[in-house]
Design a protein around this nucleic acid. Structure first.
Lengths: 229, 229
DNA sequence: TTACTTAGTGTAAAAAATACACACTATATT
DNA sequence: AATATAGTGTGTATTTTTTACACTAAGTAA
């Protein structure tokens, strides 16, 4: 990318806002750049798109190379292409967001050559970001705020089995406001996309809550009808 | 574009789904291709993105070159980049939709070299489209269906002054279903984004309806609060 | 056994969405 | 002048959805 920007008609990349939730805060995964431009700055993980990969594949492989995870929920949401957004020439970038469940204490593998390391940062306490990545992040957060109201994406941030209180926390974090417990449960259960398990939370020092699973099959049946979480 | 695809890292274009409304049907503007590939096929108007233009500017200039219109409502909505979507190599395209008011009997100027002519087609009766343009169109229609429910984009398809019935028609066309007249009016007026004019429709052979204007100022004040049309 | 912490539950009031029909008015036709 | 025609403009009752609100039950820790 560095050597020959000028010869390309256009340079096209993908950047990812990878959201993670560990039960406490909403986080995103940033890499520390090993190369100019913006050496030593924090940036969204990204890459140029190779000839033979689809856009979605390309985004997935960025994610896999950093986290080792596969089959992650990702969605493209906006293309950024102001001339001047990249100091070395015209680079159009397509932004994706991804949602993953943290807490598995996964090792991060920044195997990409341009990154020194990858670290989870709380979205409420981000460092200064390279390029226009702050703008890209802001738009991404805005998009998932909108999305979570109509699509069941909160589940992607939680483990397979979760409690209703955990689910509510995710909504509260993303929407940025408190919700009423009773009303939240009533509404959530009314969609019939949750399956109650015969199982309780473990390892808590208080009354254990019932675990639930998101039922993709039931959800698929609903699809088409617009849902408002 | 034809000569040297292979030498580019990636080729990046913009395609536009230009929606128009003439009081009757919802239409889109298609061009008949003058060149291979897909010579003589109908296609969405599009172009490669030049080095120094922003993406939005680039989309605007496609629209201006065809219609002569400026300051049109446009919005990017999705990037299509499957390897294989273009027979001559990897071309990533960013899709925009635009909404314009027809009826001014504007001449169409297909000044782009690759188009023989440009013609408005009813969305219910489209010809076979080149490349993956059918897919691009489908997604565009889906997007404005979603959008019209939450953002005041219907106005973009109507003249400055319009009747409530005309406005209702636009909603019915895009949403693909009949709406109740009294409920529609009640709801629409409740948003207080319309200004009633001291003016009546002209040239109709029946009772003339009151004309309204969309009040962008009032709308701007509402913004932030989510609206549901 | 007691203190502590979170789980889990129902109801009433307010707001929003829906279903529904007829008289009025401007024009065109005879 | 009378009449036909076509769309305008309006209100209410019912149902559904949303909101506001507080206490008891269950399990753990000391």
């Amino acid at each position: 990318m560095k050597e020959g920007l000028a010869q390309f008609n256009s340079v096209f990349s993908i950047d990812c806002v990878i959201f993670g939730f560990d039960g406490g805060e909403l986080k995103i995964l940033l890499i520390e750049r090993a190369e100019e431009p913006f050496k030593d700055w924090w940036a969204l993980p990204g890459n140029l798109v190779s000839e033979d990969q689809s856009l979605d594949q390309s985004a997935s492989s960025i994610l896999t190379s950093l986290t080792g995870l596969r089959d992650i929920y990702m969605e493209q949401y906006y293309a950024f292409g102001d001339p001047g957004r990249h100091p070395q020439g015209r680079v159009v970038t397509l932004a994706y967001y991804a949602l993953i469940r943290l807490g598995g204490e996964k090792e991060l593998h920044p195997v990409t050559s341009y990154a020194k390391r990858a670290v989870w940062w709380s979205v409420n306490d981000l460092p200064k970001l390279a390029f226009d990545h702050k703008k890209i992040f802001d738009k991404g957060l805005e998009k998932i705020k909108r999305r979570i109201k109509h699509q069941p994406i909160a589940f992607e941030l939680l483990p397979e089995k979760f409690t209703l209180t955990q689910l509510q926390h995710v909504y509260e974090l993303i929407l940025g406001k408190k919700l009423d417990k009773r009303n939240f449960r009533k509404k959530m259960l009314s969609f019939s996309v949750l399956r109650e398990l015969n199982e309780k939370q473990k390892g808590v020092s208080y009354r254990a809550a019932t675990l639930y699973k998101f039922d993709r099959r039931k959800y698929a049946k609903l699809f088409g009808k617009e849902i408002s979480f």
